[in-house]
Design a protein around this nucleic acid. Structure first.
Lengths: 167, 167
DNA sequence: TCTTTTCTTCATTTTTTATTGAAGAATCTG
DNA sequence: CAGATTCTTCAATAAAAAATGAAGAAAAGA
C-alpha cells in the first residue's frame, strides 16, 4: 500500500508541470490530437516517476474515459510505455522522450494514407480529362501535372524527414 | 451580361471537379482548414476560367459568408488571386497553383509562433527546475534538455523545408 | 470460483468549430 | 448623388469533435 507520504495522488500540478502540459497541448493539437492527450503526455513527460491512470485522472481532473483512451492512443504511437511495477496492482505509465514518435505517427497515419488516396484520385482525374474537348483538356492536364509534381515532391521529402527525425 | 451559353453559373460539378475538391478538403483539413476552404480552393484549382463568388456559392452550395471568409483566408495566404476583369462588376478569382503557399502559411502562422512560445516556456521551466531539490532537479533538467534538443532540431529543419518548398 | 480492483467501451452530454444569412458597408454606374 | 449591386461582418444556428461516466469486461487475489 502507498504510505500517506509517498502517495503521488492528489498532489496538485507544479508550475513546471503546467508549462509542460500547456506546451504539449499546443503542439499535439497541431497534429490533430485532443487536449486531453496533450495533458496526459505533458504530465508524464515531466513526471519523475511512473504514474498510474488514477494519478492522471486525479491531477489533471479528467475523466476515466479520457484517461483510458488517451493512454491507449499514446501507447499506440509509442509515445507512452507501460512499466510493470512488481507488487503494484495498477499499470504504471512513463513517457517515451523520443518526440519524433509523434511526427512519425502523423506521417504514417495521416499524411501517407492521404497521399495514397490522392494518387488514385489523380489517376481518375486523368481519365476524366481525356474525355474533355481539346481546350479544356489542355488546361486540365496542366493542373493535374501540377498536382503530380507536388505529390512527387512530397514523396521525395518524406523519407528525408523521417531519417532526420530518427536522428 | 453573361449570355445564356457562356454563363458558368449553376453548372453542376463534374467528376473532375469533385475529385479535386475532395482531395483539397482532405489535405487542407490536415493543416486545420475548414471544409469550405478546401471546397473553394479545389474548385478554383480545376476551373479553366476565373470564377466569381457567386459561381462558388452556386456550384458548391455554400453560404455567402462561408464564400467570403474562405476567399479572404485563401487570399491572405496567397493561394487565391483576384483577377480584375474589365467590364465585369464582380471580382473574379483564380487559384495560385503554387501549393507550397499552404505549407509556408502553416509554418509561418502555426508552427513558428508555437516554437517561439515554447522557447519562452523552456526558459521558465529552467527557472522552476533550479528551485527543486537535487534529485528532482537532475531529472527535470534531463527532460528540459530533451525539449531543447527537439526545438533545435525543428529550427534547423524548417529553413531547409522552406527552401525545398520554394523549389 | 467468487470478490474486488482496474481498465475499456460507448451512448450521452458538453465544448469547440464551422456555417448560415441578415444587416449594413463598400463599391460601382448612370 | 441616388440606386443598384457586390461584398463583409457577426450573432445565431448547426455540425463536428471531445469529454464524461456508467455498464460491464478483464485481471488479480483470496
Amino acid at each position: 500500500m502507498n504510505s500517506v507520504l509517498s502517495s503521488t495522488k492528489s498532489e496538485s500540478l507544479s508550475r513546471l508541470d503546467i508549462e509542460a502540459i500547456e506546451m504539449f497541448i499546443s503542439f499535439l493539437k497541431l497534429i490533430g490530437l485532443p487536449k486531453s492527450v496533450g495533458e496526459i503526455y505533458g504530465l508524464l513527460f515531466v513526471a519523475p516517476e511512473p504514474l498510474t491512470m488514477d494519478d492522471l485522472i486525479d491531477r489533471l481532473k479528467i475523466s476515466m474515459g479520457a484517461a483510458s483512451q488517451g493512454l491507449k492512443l499514446l501507447r499506440s504511437v509509442g509515445a507512452v510505455k507501460v512499466v510493470y511495477t512488481p507488487g503494484e496492482r495498477r499499470d504504471h505509465y512513463v513517457a517515451d522522450l523520443e518526440l519524433s514518435k509523434f511526427a512519425a505517427a502523423f506521417i504514417k497515419e495521416e499524411l501517407n494514407p492521404r497521399m495514397q488516396r490522392a494518387m488514385e484520385r489523380i489517376g481518375r482525374m486523368e481519365a476524366e480529362a481525356r474525355l474533355m474537348d481539346d481546350d479544356a483538356q489542355k488546361i486540365a492536364f496542366q493542373r493535374i501535372e501540377r498536382l503530380k509534381h507536388w505529390m512527387k515532391r512530397g514523396q521525395k521529402m518524406m523519407p528525408w524527414i523521417l531519417r532526420f527525425l530518427v536522428s
